[in-house]
Amino acid sequence: MAQAQGQAQGATSTLPPFTKKLLRWSFAIGIVPPVVLVVALVSKSVLLLDYVHVITGGTWTGFDLYMGLVMSQILRSLEVPARVEIAKRLTPTTFFIIPSLASTAITSGIYLAQDFGKFDLHSVWIMAAGVVVLILVAQGFGVFLPNGVRIFLELAKAKPDPGLISKLTIRNVRLAASQAVFQVIIILIMAHLAIY
């Protein structure tokens, strides 16, 4: 009976008013890296291409390190309601930015390796980079992204489960720590490729 009434009335969204604003901000920042990559390729500027790759890769790595080493400790020290308040703001703000940084860093890396004649799929170092990238992408699309969307969906429910939101946020932050380890490994591979 109560369920039928709920369906008839429709569930009420509990999404905070700032969510859409933060999502728009995230998209406005997230669209910049691929657009600058287009500019680098159209202008045939290897310097700009290198810059796009380094800044997107570096920012992606820095974000993972920050989330894994700093935010994880902050979130652990907070009560569940405070974690939920952070999740409400952190999820929409990073929603487009992180996948855009990751995708642009990887795509520009392919162009750069080709430009420098290092994109040899039989090279152990290129294969190692490919494996690490696959792990990072699988984690990103397989865990980070679905968790972020699930947080949104939970927030849009009439009765959001704060425990679930907190759990998903902590899971993403912990995953960022493991991503940070792979980021450190891939930077080692990149440093080798740049010198040899």
């Binding site: 859409k20 998209f27 429910k157």
Partner: peptide
Amino acid sequence: GELSPEGVMILRWALVG
């Protein structure tokens, strides 16, 4: 009836983005 249609609408916009 658990989720408001706004949740699905945001999902669509996220996909477009």
